[in-house]
Design a protein around this nucleic acid. Structure first.
Length: 428
RNA sequence: GGGGAGAUUCCAGAGUGGCCAAAUGGGGCAGACUGUAAAUCUGUUGCGAAAGCUUCGGAGGUUCGAAUCCUUCUCUCCCCA
C-alpha cells in the first residue's frame, strides 16, 4: 500500500486536508468519495482532476466511491457561483447521471475480486424518499444557521447583495447529509473534492460528529490553473469534454499537445499515473530539449489513451502527423477514403454539391458562399490575400480559381484556414 | 413615489449636426519568427469585386444632411423616500 498523501502531495494535487488524515490512511484500507454534479451528460477535463484523485486513491490501495449527484443536481451547488443556478428537469438529470456513470466506470477498477473495488452511488437513491419534515427534524436540527452562513461561499453571496434562495442555501446541508449517509452505511470516512468544496465537505464532517460523534475527514485538490491565467479546460470552441462526440479524440489529443511547457510539468503529474522517476526523467529531458515537446507528447498520449483508448490515440496521432507534419498534396491523395475520414473525424466541414464547381469558381466565392468555410466573401478574400489559405496543402493565391481537379479521392477537399484550423469539404 | 445618469460596432470606451463604417484600448483572426509554444513585430477585424448598402436600445419626427437635435417607448444604473 503506497502512501496516498505522499503521492498526491508530490503530484501537486493536495490543497488542504483535515488533521489526522495521514495517520488515518496509514492504518488500513479506507473508503473515500468524491461527488460529480450532473450538469451535463458528459464530464469535461475540469472533472478529470477529481477522477484522477480517485484513481490515485485506489492505486494506493484504498476504496474509491464516485457519487453522482442525482439529488444535489436538482438544487445546484451555489459555492462561489455569482448567481442563482437554473434547475434541471428530471429527464435531463437522469439522462446526465447515466452518461456520467458510464464515463466514470472507464477510469476506476470495479472488479468484484478486488477488496478495494470502486463503486458508483447516486444520492438520489437515499434522498428521494427523505421527506422535508424528516430532513429538517433529523438533519437540520444539528447544524445552526450561523454555522452555515459563516461559510465563505454563502457569505460572499450575501455580502455582495446578490442573495441566495433557500434552496441553494440548503445545498451544503444536503451534501453534508450525503457524507453522513455514506459514512453510516458504506464506511466512508473521507470526502474528496475541489478546493471550492471545502465548506460543503466540512459541513459533512461536522454533521457526522454532531449526529453520532463520529470522525470523518476532508481532503481537497487545488483548482487547476494555467500559467497564462486563462481558464483551464476551455478552448475557443468551449469545454474539452470526455465524450468523443462532443470533443473528438483528435481535438482532445491536440488540447494536451498544445499545453505550455510550464503547465505540462504540472499536468503530467496530475493527469497521468506515470511513476515519479519516469516523470522526473521526462521533465529533465524536456528541459534540455524543450523544442521537442517531449512532455506534451507523453502527456497527450497518456491522457488520450486513458480516456479514449489506444486505438483512438493512434488515429489522433496519425491525424496530427498528417495535418502538422511535412505532408504534401501527394500524401493526401495517397490516403484511401477510410483513413482519410478517420484522420479528419471531428474536423469541421461542410457538404457541397459536385456541380457547384463544374465550372471554375472564384476562390473567395467558393470558400464563403459554397463551402461556408468563412462567414463572408470579404473575409475569405482577406485571408486569401494574406496567404492564410491552403487547399489540399497548397498555398492558394487569390487569383487561382477552384476546379474539379481539387477534389481528392473523388470526394474531398481539405482547406486550411491559417496554420491550425482545418476544414473538410465533402462533395456529394 | 420623487430626482438624476445612461443605452455606440465582439468587449470596454470616445464621438454631441456633415471631415463617422465611427477614435483608442482589449479581444479575435492572419502573416513573419518559432516548438502545432510563449514573447515580439506586422496586417486585419459590418456586407459588397465595385458602385453602393445596412449599423450607434426600439418606433416616429426635424433637417439638404442625424450616432449626434426633438417626441415617445423599452431597458439599465445611481441618489432620496
Amino acid at each position: 500500500m503506497s502512501d496516498f498523501i505522499d503521492t498526491i502531495t508530490w503530484r501537486g494535487m493536495l490543497h488542504d486536508m483535515t488533521p489526522g488524515l495521514t495517520e488515518h490512511l496509514k492504518s488500513g484500507m479506507r473508503t473515500a468519495y468524491l461527488g460529480f454534479d450532473p450538469t451535463a451528460d458528459s464530464l469535461h477535463i475540469g472533472h478529470l482532476v477529481g477522477v484522477m484523485t480517485l484513481v490515485h486513491f485506489q492505486r494506493a490501495g484504498h476504496k474509491p466511491l464516485a457519487l453522482v449527484g442525482g439529488a444535489t443536481g436538482m438544487i445546484g451547488d451555489p459555492s462561489f457561483k455569482s448567481a442563482e443556478r437554473n434547475l434541471l428537469d428530471m429527464d435531463t438529470l437522469s439522462y446526465n447521471v447515466a452518461g456520467i456513470k458510464k464515463q466514470l466506470s472507464e477510469f476506476l477498477d470495479f472488479s468484484d475480486t478486488l477488496s478495494n473495488r470502486a463503486e458508483i452511488v447516486n444520492n438520489y437513491d437515499w434522498m428521494a424518499g427523505f421527506t422535508f419534515l424528516d430532513f429538517i427534524r433529523d438533519v437540520g436540527k444539528h447544524i445552526t444557521v450561523n454555522y452555515m452562513m459563516a461559510k465563505d461561499s454563502v457569505r460572499k453571496r450575501i455580502e455582495d447583495g446578490s442573495g441566495m434562495s433557500f434552496t441553494e442555501f440548503s445545498y451544503q446541508l444536503i451534501q453534508g447529509y450525503d457524507f453522513y449517509h455514506l459514512w453510516k452505511h458504506k464506511g466512508v470516512t473521507i470526502q474528496l473534492g475541489g478546493s471550492d468544496q471545502w465548506g460543503n465537505i466540512v459541513t459533512g464532517t461536522e454533521l457526522i460528529r454532531r449526529m453520532e460523534g463520529g470522525t470523518a475527514y476532508a481532503l481537497t485538490v487545488p483548482l487547476i490553473t494555467k500559467a497564462d491565467g486563462t481558464k483551464f479546460g476551455k478552448t475557443e470552441s468551449g469545454s474539452v469534454w470526455l465524450d468523443p462526440v462532443k470533443t473528438s479524440p483528435y481535438a482532445f489529443y491536440q488540447f494536451w499537445l498544445n499545453v505550455s511547457d510550464e503547465d505540462a510539468e504540472k499536468y503530467i503529474k496530475i493527469f497521468t499515473t506515470l511513476p515519479k522517476e519516469e516523470i522526473e526523467s521526462l521533465v529533465d529531458e524536456h528541459r534540455n530539449a524543450a523544442h521537442l515537446r517531449i512532455l506534451q507528447k507523453v502527456l497527450a498520449r497518456e491522457v488520450t489513451t486513458l480516456v479514449h483508448g489506444s486505438s483512438e490515440f493512434t488515429s489522433a496521432l496519425k491525424a496530427s502527423e498528417i495535418l502538422f507534419g511535412k505532408s504534401s498534396a501527394d500524401d493526401l491523395r495517397s490516403l484511401d477514403e477510410r483513413t482519410f475520414l478517420q484522420v479528419f473525424e471531428g474536423v469541421p466541414g461542410s457538404e457541397v454539391s459536385r456541380l457547384s464547381i463544374d465550372q471554375p469558381v472564384d476562390p473567395a466565392v467558393f470558400l464563403a458562399d459554397i463551402a461556408k468555410a468563412y462567414p463572408s466573401r470579404g473575409e475569405a478574400r482577406r485571408m486569401l490575400q494574406q496567404g492564410a489559405v491552403m487547399i489540399n496543402k497548397e498555398k492558394w493565391p487569390l487569383e487561382r480559381f477552384i476546379t474539379k481537379d481539387q477534389i481528392l479521392n473523388g470526394k474531398f477537399m481539405l482547406i486550411q484556414k491559417g496554420k491550425k484550423n482545418y476544414f473538410l469539404v465533402k462533395f456529394v
